[in-house]
Amino acid sequence: MNAIENTNHGGNGGHGGNGAGGHGGYNFAYLDEQSKRMIRRAILKAVAIPGYQVPFGSREMPLPYGWGTGGIQVTASIIGRDDVLKVIDQGADDTTNAVSIRKFFVRTAGIATTEETGQATIIQTRHRIPEQSLLPGQILVYQVPIPEPLRWLEARETETRKMHGLADYGIMHVKLYEDIAKYGHIETSYDYPVRVNGRYLTAPSPIPKFDNPKMNDMPALQLFGAGREKRIYAIPPHTRVESLDFDDHPFEVQTWSEVCALCGADDTYLDEVIMDDRGTSMFVCSDTAHCAERRAAGHRGPDGDAAPTGLVP
């Protein structure tokens, strides 16, 4: 939890306003120190009760709800001046929303940023976990739209909180049963529910289920922020994370018969890119930084030379 310690010298009110990295009239990393402390307290509680959704006084951020206000508040509360931030959306550093959030922190906190997974101390993500294994000391901050995994089965917060309190999760397996009865296998492909540390049923956020196994026993700290729903939860390093399944219908991840057209990887999550109006498509790594690193190391896919490194239009 380096970053949390870092914030001690990252700002304690004295840096407000025009301190280095601050942005005219706003505190370091936008949020005032009181709000940051409140959020850090929620984070500490969340770490202490893995997978439990801690309500917190979510602030209105200058980005819209649904754009990652929860993740931004978590990052803003833990980031210090020495941190190096990576922001991805759909696995890529250069999608518009990732760019916008990275710019926000550069503008309000003046911190260093990177696209290299291994170089980052904090990685804020929407919808993916990087392919490269994360390291001890790193923090992965997820943006979460709907933190309640039971929401589609039970609309009422009062009821779902009771279900969590009593670990009354049979209904979740009813849903999986129903999938198998109907389709022969479990139908959920993203935001696939997990059980954290054998206790709380938890939403992994809309990452593809392909990424679920990476959550288990991860050396990095995983923090989840849901701004609109005002919940924070966490998975401490090296925590058991199980994807729900049946003994005779075990959890499985997506596979492709193709490899990445650019770097040739056969073990990554692939995005499908439509090439023309005749249905031709190619498959490329969704994690662009990972793909670029592989190509820099000399790996080539079937279409590897067609796309120059850097992928500039």
Binding site: P145, Q254, L270
Partner: peptide
């Protein structure tokens, strides 16, 4: 309406990864 407009309009953000999961399925 600040919460509602944000969440309704966030559907404009890319959902490639989730959609890919659904495509495979």
């Amino acid at each position: 309406n600040v919460e509602a407009q944000g969440f309704v309009q966030h559907l404009k953000l890319p959902h490639y990864v989730d959609f890919q999961g659904e495509l495979v399925l």
